[in-house]
Amino acid sequence: MSLKNTENFFVLGLFLAVLGLISAVLLAVFSDMVSEPIAAAELRTTNEALKQILPAFDNQPSEDKIVLKQDDMEITFMGAAKDGKLVAVAASGERKGYAAPIQALIGFDLDGKIRAVLITKQNETPGLGANVCHRQFKKTIFNLFEKRPEGLAPNSFLDQFNGKSAVKGKNWKVRKDGGRIDYVSGATITSRTITELADAVAQCFLANRAEIIAKLSPAGGNEK
């Protein structure tokens, strides 16, 4: 190899190194620029979801939270407060579905009864598993021109959990597995996953209720 070729390789290597450094700096700057807007957007999305499954609150539930484990699953509990008193609790958990992880946000009254289940992330099969997760107001010929109703849209599968409380030693199961939860035909795995997810979150709340309420209650507004 001639000296000239060696010099060319050195210059090329130096050029690529500088180019890589510039790219890394630009990527870091861009990431820093977009991280705050992304975080703000995610917070808005979470707060909007919380408003659908919890009673009126005047705090920031996503900032008042604790993380516990149940069945190797991390569950984030958030406290909703009104006028300095804890009024409800929301919990977020995730479990592997048919196609990908399914994430749910579940609202609880302080006595442990489920207020509502909302699926916040899923990638199940369109027309099958996805129908188990989606909440939507259906348009018919009778309500075509009516204003969209306020509140949480219905979902016959998810609404089965409303008002349910976990019972120690008794797990919720779909009817196909010997339980009492109706499942959606053609989407058994998705139905089973959400049932197991809701049960795990409810069981965790049952087992740690006193700790959760004590830690999420505003100072001076402890609940029993």
Rank of each mutant, 00 (worst) to 15 (best):
T6G: 12
F9D: 02
F9S: 02
F10E: 03
L16I: 12
V18F: 02
L19P: 02
I22K: 01
S23A: 09
A24L: 05
M33F: 14
M33C: 11
M33V: 13
I38L: 07
A39Q: 11
E42R: 14
E42L: 11
K51Q: 04
L54T: 07
F57D: 03
F57Y: 06
N59C: 14
E63T: 02
I66G: 01
V67F: 02
L68K: 07
Q70M: 10
G79D: 05
A80P: 04
A81D: 10
K85R: 11
L86D: 12
E94N: 08
K96W: 13
Y98S: 15
I102F: 15
I102S: 08
G107Y: 12
F108W: 12
D109N: 14
L110R: 08
G112I: 07
G112S: 06
K113N: 09
A116G: 00
I119V: 09
I119A: 05
T120H: 10
K121D: 01
T125Q: 14
A130M: 10
H134A: 12
H134I: 06
I141V: 06
E146L: 07
R148W: 02
E150N: 01
G151F: 02
L152T: 03
D159V: 00
D159L: 00
V167T: 03
G169S: 15
K173F: 05
R175Y: 10
K176L: 01
G178I: 05
G178C: 01
G178H: 09
G179L: 08
R180T: 13
D182G: 00
S185Y: 15
A187M: 00
A187E: 04
S191H: 00
R192Q: 08
T195K: 11
A198I: 11
A202V: 05
Q203A: 00
N208G: 06
A214Q: 03
K215Y: 07
L216P: 01
S217E: 14
G220W: 12
N222E: 12
E223A: 14
